[in-house]
Amino acid sequence: MSFIQKHPKLLLLFAFASIYIIWGSTFLAISYGLKGFPPFLLSGLRFLIAGIILLVWRDLKGERTSSFRDWKKNGITGILILTGGTGLVTWGEQYITSTEAAIAIATGPFWFIAIDRKNWKNYFSNISTIAGLIVGFAGLLLFLNDSIHSAGGAAPKTMRIAAFAVLALSSISWVLGSLYSKHYRATHSTFKNISQQLVVAGVASFIIATFRGEWHAFPAATIPVSAWLGLAFLVFFGSIVAYISYIWLLSVKHPVIVSTHTYINPVVAVLAGWLFLNESISLLQLAGLLVILAGVLLTNAASYKINKRLVVKIRRASRTLFSSPSGDKYLVDF
């Protein structure tokens, strides 16, 4: 604690690095995990192990589980956000690359606006929000058109289409869970709520795996080391370190600033897929990604308020940058 108090900027840097890099790398970790685990078994192990670790930690801290009502609220949130949101992404990555999955998931903010009916009046009265939705939808069409007709991956075209459709459902499930959590929050601490969400999501994922027959197709004796490492990364980094960093950042920084991970995660995923799995991305897919991110930026434009003091600093910095040592201004033509 004393180290944290003495070095708050380092803690902030670590937390932002966690949600930027770790969450962007989870798509790669899922690809490795799928080399040995069926999708919902992989998700179930990820959530349940992480949930038990956090649950034991909170119990050791003296925070006991209170009511069935709180378990129910956290259970619904966990099933929607984790089992439905993240679990369906894991299923989809059987048929498309981690890069494609990350780019498709970048459209999440658009689904949030579409589903959050209570705030439609605010959303659609803002020109930048409407423009962002149109631009983002155009980028998604550009990306999907090239991805579906590309020869990437060994999966047939019909399964690739199904995978993208499931990814859309995963985004919708994530948004529904987020809205439910916002309006029906449990009475525990944030970390206790997260632990219960993870445990219920893990159990729900195992139930789905059972109905899908994944236990029978589970090659427990022949799981490669890379799959175990992928699972370990998802448990300790994706579901614990990054998730806790995200929740802590929301308590000390403006949500709009924290939400910048939306722009960084797909870029990190593209780089990780290229470096470790030799995944390629076409120029049209890259263009689609850039257009989607531009749309996300526009939809949030109204929330980005630049402090006047920051504007002054930017002006001073620009004067210094574009001035010669003798004091003469450089002429810069953009």
Score class of each variant (00 low, 15 high):
I314V: 14
T210P: 00
L34V: 06
H183W: 07
L298F: 06
L144E: 04
I292A: 07
S173F: 01
V56W: 10
G33S: 10
G139D: 09
T86D: 08
H261R: 06
G273V: 03
L271W: 05
G238P: 01
S18Y: 05
F47W: 00
P224G: 03
F164A: 02
V203L: 12
K313F: 07
K121M: 02
I30W: 05
R319Y: 14
F236G: 14
G84Q: 08
S282Q: 05
W274P: 02
S282R: 10
L13Q: 12
I127V: 14
T86H: 15
R309Y: 10
S170F: 03
T65W: 14
H149K: 14
A131M: 12
H7E: 06
L321I: 11
W215G: 02
L286H: 01
I52W: 05
G202M: 05
A131D: 00
L250D: 08
L140V: 14
V175W: 01
S98Y: 11
I4P: 00
K121V: 11
F276H: 06
F14S: 13
G153C: 08
V291T: 13
T187Y: 00
T86F: 15
A114V: 11
F143D: 03
I103P: 03
Y180D: 02
L28S: 06
S178G: 13
V225Q: 11
G92E: 02
T107S: 15
I148K: 11
L289D: 04
S189C: 01
S171H: 01
L331Y: 13
F191N: 13
A201Y: 07
A50C: 03
P325L: 12
V312L: 12
G288R: 04
V267H: 00
V203C: 04
M1L: 12
K182D: 05
A227M: 07
V332M: 12
Y263Q: 08
G230N: 09
F237K: 03
S66G: 09
G152M: 13
L140Q: 08
I4G: 00
L231G: 08
W111D: 00
A220H: 06
L60C: 11
L54N: 04
G295Q: 07
E214M: 09
H216Y: 10
R185E: 08
W57D: 10
S170M: 03
V89N: 04
Q5E: 15
R64Q: 13
L41I: 15
A301N: 03
H216D: 11
V296P: 00
I81T: 09
L13D: 00
Q5K: 15
V203I: 15
F47K: 00
I207P: 02
A138H: 01
F211D: 02
L54C: 04
